[in-house]
Design a protein around this nucleic acid. Structure first.
Length: 290
DNA sequence: ACGGATGTTCGCGC
DNA sequence: CGCGCGAACATCCG
């Protein structure tokens, strides 16, 4: 689920939820989410901790607790934090649930819950991630910002804003397709495939344009489009829970709409190309190649 | 049933 | 060093 707006939404939720702390019990399965870390250490370190701050940098969540305990969390492709009121009986990762009759009791824990923070008062925060592409790492809170995954991030469009001159300077040094460049987390932190696609459409820039070919004016347009795209997605997130794969219809302008008519010019048909291994949708009329 | 999916990271080759 | 490509990770959905 996660690009910058979704991660920001998760950060706001966690900030609210963790304020009910402290954590009376923590648990994680022996999962690869921990990246070689020890699941018993996860439980030991987080038990008893109270939240100090929840920050977001790009797609990363940085949770700082008292006693200098920190948790780094990346949602990968399908990770999310879910709050429930019951921890569930099993001390095992929840596998996908088999179909059961309507009359059967409701499940106690959400599917794919691989780590849990149980708060005083009974709420349980589950980290759920079917594909296990995410990561959860315990570090000293004071060292979170110094981790290379964090310190190597480019400016975050919401936290730092986008400085056109700096972005232009960075893009001028590479011939990579501009879409690949803005998805590079060391160039901008938090932009992924959906919002890169949407922002380039808004800015009327072809996704395959060599980064170095963009004028400063175009970069300015692109920067504004990125911020606007992210702000709109975040607003929608806060208003309702609409997103992909949650029973919601596609609310994006062109993402995943190849073959449909362009919503802007209404004449061209949206096309699809692959850049940097990812699918890109664009309108050849509104986003000319040169 | 097959192909693709919001992300990252690795290895290989040029 | 830059860059592209494909694979890998594990599961779900249409």
């Amino acid at each position: 689920m996660p690009e910058l707006p979704e991660v920001e939404h998760a950060a706001r939720s966690l900030r609210r939820w963790l304020a009910d702390g402290p954590i009376v019990r923590a648990w994680a399965g022996p999962t690869r989410l921990l990246r070689g870390g020890d699941h018993r250490l996860f439980a030991r370190k987080l038990r008893g901790r109270s939240i100090v701050s929840v920050e977001r940098r790009g797609k990363l969540l940085l949770l700082s607790f008292d006693e200098d305990v920190g948790l780094l969390c990346h949602l990968g492709m399908t990770g999310k934090w879910v709050r429930s009121l019951d921890p569930g009986p099993a001390e095992l990762p929840q596998r996908p649930r088999a179909k059961r009759p309507k009359s059967a009791p409701a499940p106690a824990a959400p599917p794919h819950s691989h780590a849990r923070l149980e708060l005083r008062g009974g709420a349980v925060l589950h980290y759920c991630d079917p594909r296990l592409f995410g990561r959860l790492e315990v570090h000293p809170a004071s060292e979170l910002l110094g981790l290379s995954v964090v310190s190597s991030l480019g400016p975050d469009p919401l936290v730092d804003r986008i400085v056109v001159a700096a972005l232009h300077d960075k893009l001028s040094r590479t011939a990579r397709p501009v879409k690949v460049a803005i998805m590079d987390q060391t160039v901008l932190a938090g932009v992924g495939n959906i919002y890169a696609t949407e922002a380039l459409f808004r800015a009327k820039i072809h996704p395959a344009r060599p980064s170095s070919s963009l004028s400063k004016r175009e970069i300015g347009r692109l920067g504004e489009a990125i911020v606007a795209t992210i702000a709109l997605a975040l607003k929608r997130r806060e208003e309702d829970m609409t997103y992909l794969s949650e029973g919601a219809e596609n609310r994006f302008l062109i993402y995943d709409r190849a073959g449909e008519a362009c919503p802007e010019c209404r004449r061209g048909t949206l096309e699809k190309i692959t850049l940097g291994g990812r699918t890109s949708t664009y309108c050849a009329r509104c986003q000319p190649a040169r």
